[in-house]
Write a protein that binds this DNA or RNA. Structure first.
Lengths: 215, 215
DNA sequence: ACCTGAACACCGTTCAAGT
DNA sequence: ACCTGAACACCGTTCAAGT
C-alpha cells in the first residue's frame, strides 16, 4: 500500500512488438468503448486493431483489465482532485464539486456505472482498487463536511458512493444526461444536508463547533 | 384510455394449442427470468418449454412483450395500491409506502430497472404504458404530499421515479439488497422532505394549511 | 393457423500451431 | 516470447417448409 510511485509501473520490459501491440490495442479499445459502451465487442476491438484475437487476450486477459487500463488516468485525476479538495475551507462545496466530477467521470462510458457497482463487491476484479479508492476519497470529503455540521451524520461513505453512482446510472437514460445528472445530484445533496438547527439561541450558522466531537 | 375492463382482454380466441403454448411459455419464462434476470436466454426458454424457437417469437415477438406479460399483474397491483393510498390522510406516509412497494417490485427481477429506464424513453415498447402509469401514480401521491407541505416543491414526478428506480438498481448490487434498498430509500425521502419552516411564530408542525393552495 | 428447426450473423474464450 | 486463427459453445432473429 506504499511504494507505487512512478505512475507508469510497466512491470517488465516487453518485447517492442508486444509493447506496440499493447498500446495500439489500448488506443483502439478506448475509441470503441467510448462509442459502444463498456460491453463493446472484444472481437471487434481486435479486428479494428489488426491483431489476432489471442493477442488481445494475452494483453488483457479480462474485460476488467482492459477497462482498468482505459480508465487508469481518469481515476488518478479524480484521486488527486480529492486530495486537493481536502484542504478546502468550504467542506460542503468541496464534497459537492468532487461528487460532480466523479459523476461526470462515471458517465463517460455507457455501462461503466454497472461495472463499478459489480466490481466493488469483487476484490479480484482489476477495477476493484480504483473503485475502492474512489469510495475512500468520497469518505474523507464526506467526513469533513459532516464534522463541519453540513451533512447529516447518518450518511455513510458507502451510501454516498452508491447514491451518486446510481444517479450517474439513471442520468444515462435521460435525454440530456448532463443536465439531468447535475439536477438529480443537487437534489440529493440538498437532501443530505443537515437541517438548520431548531435550537433556541442566535448561533448564526457559520461556526458549528467543528473540533472535539467526543468527550 | 377508458374501456379496458375485464383485466383479461384475450384479444381473440386463439386455437387451443396456441393458447396452451402461450400459457406454458409464459410460465416457464417467468421461472427462467426470475432465475437469470431479464436478459435470460430466449432460446433456453423455448427449449425448457419444449417448443420451437419460432413459437416463442410468434407469441412474444419481442423481449419487451414477454416481460410485459410476465409483469402485468404486479404492475396492476401497484396501480391499485396507489389508488387506494391516494385517499389516505397521511400523504407522506402514503407516498413513502408506495415507493417502497414500487422499489421492491422493481427488484424482483435482475435487470428490470435498466429495462424500465430504457423503456420509458420509447413509447413503442410494450413496457412503456405500464411504466408510464407508474410514473403517473407516483406523481399523484407526490402532489398530495407536496400540497400537504411535506415534500419540497422543486421535486418533480420524474425526479422521484428516476431516483427510486436508481436506488432499486443500486441495491441490486448490494449484499443484502432489501435492507440496503430501504435504507437508501429512507435516506432519499428524508432528504426530499420540506425543512421545518424557520419563520418566527409557534405553529407546531402538525397542520400545514392543507387546503386551498391557490388564491 | 400454427409450429418447427435450419440458417445466418454475431458473441466470448481457449488453445494448438506457427514465427 | 509472442502472435494467429480455427474451434467450441453459446447467443438473437428470420423464414421456408411442414401439419
Amino acid at each position: 500500500m506504499a511504494q507505487a510511485k512512478s505512475g507508469k509501473r510497466s512491470s517488465r520490459p516487453k518485447r517492442i512488438d508486444a509493447q506496440r501491440n499493447y498500446e495500439h490495442l489500448l488506443k483502439i479499445a478506448g475509441i470503441l468503448v467510448k462509442e459502444e459502451g463498456t460491453d463493446a465487442s472484444l472481437r471487434e476491438i481486435a479486428r479494428r486493431a489488426d491483431v489476432g484475437l489471442g493477442t488481445l487476450y494475452r494483453h488483457f486477459p479480462t474485460r476488467d483489465v482492459l477497462l482498468e487500463a482505459i480508465l487508469r488516468n481518469s481515476f488518478e485525476e479524480l484521486a488527486q482532485k480529492a486530495e486537493a479538495l481536502e484542504h478546502s475551507d468550504a467542506p460542503l462545496d468541496a464534497l459537492t464539486s468532487w461528487l460532480e466530477e466523479f459523476a461526470d467521470g462515471s458517465a463517460t462510458y455507457r455501462g461503466l456505472t454497472s461495472m463499478m457497482m459489480a466490481t466493488i463487491k469483487d476484490p479480484k476484479s482489476a477495477l476493484y482498487t480504483s473503485c475502492f479508492s474512489m469510495r475512500v476519497a468520497a469518505g474523507r470529503l464526506l467526513k469533513r463536511a459532516q464534522e463541519a455540521g453540513r451533512i447529516r451524520d447518518e450518511v455513510t461513505a458507502n451510501d454516498l458512493f452508491t447514491l451518486v453512482t446510481a444517479i450517474a446510472w439513471a442520468a444515462d437514460y435521460s435525454a440530456s444526461e448532463a443536465r439531468s445528472r447535475s439536477r438529480l445530484l443537487s437534489l440529493l445533496i440538498n437532501g443530505l444536508e443537515s437541517r438548520p438547527q431548531i435550537i433556541s439561541s442566535r448561533v448564526e450558522g457559520k461556526k458549528p463547533r467543528s473540533k472535539d466531537p467526543k468527550k
